[in-house]
């Protein structure tokens, strides 16, 4: 039937397949960061899915989204064992850290989370003072972009400039005056990773 999406048998073990969870509290822009990541990957010809937690979240409670980026068609859009975690607050760290795949990557907002999380040795941990960097840029709300920029630099999927180019598609028009600060924040996140390595 012509309208049915066809899925071929795929051995995804050797093909590029990255599952990401971005989590924080409501208002930290984790949904926006996830949409921007998915949209940028889509524009670069990759397969993507984006799944937000929806509705039942309370203000100040945890919000999260799941993004999958792959070379081939993606079957399940749900992530139970992420390859990468971008964690913006403490509550999300305790909720998601144990789900990371062995060999996974944890990026966390060290402005709001004290100390180094205790995780297995195989997991690479990167502390990014996302709130502090965003404040230096004059807008705390850009902390999500700092963390995303750091993630992109670390994983090397594509540069922070590619994500910055997609901002205009994802940000609602009424927020377009924040394009410059969000763009800067993406680059500063990437630069932070470079300065640490």
């Amino acid at each position: 039937m012509s309208w049915v999406t066809k899925y071929e048998m795929q051995d995804t073990r050797n093909e590029f397949y990255e599952e990401v969870v971005i989590a924080g509290f409501g208002g930290q822009g984790v949904m926006l960061a996830g949409k921007l990541l998915a949209h940028t990957a889509m524009k670069r010809g990759l397969e993507v899915t984006y799944m937000p937690s929806y509705g039942a979240e309370v203000r100040g409670g945890t919000a999260n989204c799941m993004v999958i980026i792959a070379k081939n068609k993606i079957a399940s859009p749900l992530v139970s064992r992420p390859d990468s975690l971008i964690i913006m607050n403490k509550a999300s760290l305790s909720k998601f850290a144990s789900r990371l795949k062995a060999g996974g990557l944890l990026i966390f907002n060290s402005s709001l989370i004290d100390g180094e999380p205790q995780l297995p040795d195989t997991i690479e941990i990167l502390a990014v003072p996302a709130d502090d960097i965003a404040l230096e840029l004059g807008n705390l709300k850009a902390a999500n972009m700092v963390a995303l920029g750091a993630y992109l630099q670390k994983r090397g999927l594509f540069g922070s400039d590619a994500a910055a180019d997609s901002l205009v598609d994802i940000l609602a028009k009424r927020h377009h005056r924040t394009l410059p600060v969000n763009t800067k924040a993406l680059h500063r996140g990437a630069e932070y990773v470079v300065s640490r390595s």
């Binding site: 949409k35 998915a38 899915t49 984006y50 937000p52 929806y54």
Partner: peptide
Amino acid sequence: DGILGQMMEPIVLD
């Protein structure tokens, strides 16, 4: 269901 309603994927409108 709620997942299909909320999730995003690239599509082509026919």
